[in-house]
Simulated scan of single mutants.
Amino acid sequence: MQKILIPTDFSENAWNAIDYAMQLFRNRRCTFYLLNTYTPVIPSSRFMAKMIDGVRIVDAVRENSEQNLNKTVKRIQSKYGNPNHSFETISSFNLLVEEVKDIVDTFGIHLVITGTKGASGAEEVFMGSNSVRIIKAVKKCPVLAIPYHFEYVTPSEIAFATDFNRFYTSSELSPLLEMAKMFNATIRIVHVQYGIKALTELQQFNLNMLRRYLGNAEHFVHTVSELNSVSHTLETFSKELGIHLLAMLNYQHSYMEKMTREPIIKRTAFHTQIPLLVIPELGMEGISKGSVEEKQEVESHN
Rank of each mutant, 00 (worst) to 15 (best):
A49S: 12
K50V: 00
M51Y: 03
I52Q: 13
D53N: 14
G54M: 01
G54Q: 01
R56C: 07
I57C: 00
I57L: 00
A60Y: 02
V61E: 09
V61A: 13
V61D: 08
N64K: 15
N64R: 14
S65I: 05
E66P: 07
N68Q: 15
N68F: 06
N68P: 06
L69G: 01
L69S: 04
K71H: 08
V73Q: 04
K74D: 10
K74R: 10
R75L: 10
R75S: 09
R75E: 09
R75F: 02
I76S: 11
Q77W: 07
K79V: 11
Y80F: 15
Y80A: 14
N82M: 13
S86T: 15
F87Q: 14
F87W: 08
F87L: 11
F87H: 12
T89V: 15
I90V: 14
S91C: 10
S91Q: 06
S92P: 03
S92M: 08
N94L: 02
L95P: 07
L95S: 11
V97W: 05
V97D: 06
E98D: 15
E98K: 11
E99K: 05
K101L: 02
D102W: 03
D102S: 15
D105W: 01
D105I: 01
D105E: 06
F107R: 13
H110S: 15
L111H: 06
T114G: 08
T114C: 14
K117D: 04
S120W: 03
G121E: 15
G121D: 13
A122G: 10
E124N: 06
E124G: 03
E124P: 02
E124C: 02
V125Y: 00
V125E: 04
